[in-house]
Computed example of a mutant assay.
Amino acid sequence: MIIEPMTQRDAELTNEQPLWQTSWTSEFLSDERFQRYAARVGDELIALGAYEILENALVVHIVYLEAQPESNPTLDEGQPKYTGIGRLMVAYGIKLSIDNGLAGDVVLEAKTTALAKHYERDFGAVRLPMFQSSAPRYLIADEAAKRIFFAYLV
């Protein structure tokens, strides 16, 4: 498995069959502030992640993560082709945080109640105070970040 910068072709694949949950050619995900990465097993694209380095906040903001349709529980109710993709992409955000001198801290939003519970239970994420009507925001730091990081990116 490799993770490398996302290409325009990777983004275009999200608009082809089988369709991904989100078009990665969208204006939002094309924002130049975001670093976008693709995870592959061989030639197969299995996940995409968009990250924002927030040096003033001393964290990496995980803007959006998505697994390929066959492994995305939102799109495929059968047995996923790959598991642990979200955790892998969070680990990559932690790596970006370390590489940028930000101590491995990351923040991300839970887009569903199920994801919020998953982040707390399985990732050791801590909920941050809400601002306006935003989705619940979580911090993964310290020991929780180390456990995730060392599970994937030794």
Results as ranks from 00 to 15, higher is better:
92 Y>A: 00
25 T>Y: 08
91 A>E: 07
124 G>Q: 01
22 T>P: 03
122 D>K: 13
89 M>W: 08
95 K>G: 03
55 E>T: 00
129 P>G: 05
105 D>Q: 12
129 P>E: 07
25 T>A: 05
106 V>L: 02
120 E>T: 14
25 T>Q: 10
120 E>L: 11
33 R>N: 13
86 G>D: 10
109 E>G: 07
83 T>P: 04
112 T>G: 06
40 R>T: 04
148 I>Q: 09
64 Y>M: 15
119 Y>M: 05
100 N>L: 02
144 A>Y: 02
124 G>V: 01
9 R>M: 15
110 A>W: 06
82 Y>H: 13
4 E>W: 06
44 E>V: 01
87 R>I: 03
35 Q>L: 13
28 F>G: 09
9 R>C: 11
116 A>W: 10
71 S>R: 07
139 L>P: 02
96 L>D: 04
79 Q>W: 14
87 R>F: 10
153 L>A: 14
124 G>L: 05
124 G>R: 03
15 N>Q: 15
115 L>M: 12
10 D>S: 00
81 K>R: 15
16 E>I: 04
17 Q>K: 09
84 G>P: 01
56 N>C: 09
77 E>T: 13
1 M>I: 12
23 S>T: 12
72 N>Y: 09
124 G>C: 02
86 G>M: 10
84 G>T: 01
5 P>L: 03
102 L>M: 03
18 P>G: 03
78 G>Y: 11
135 A>G: 08
146 K>S: 10
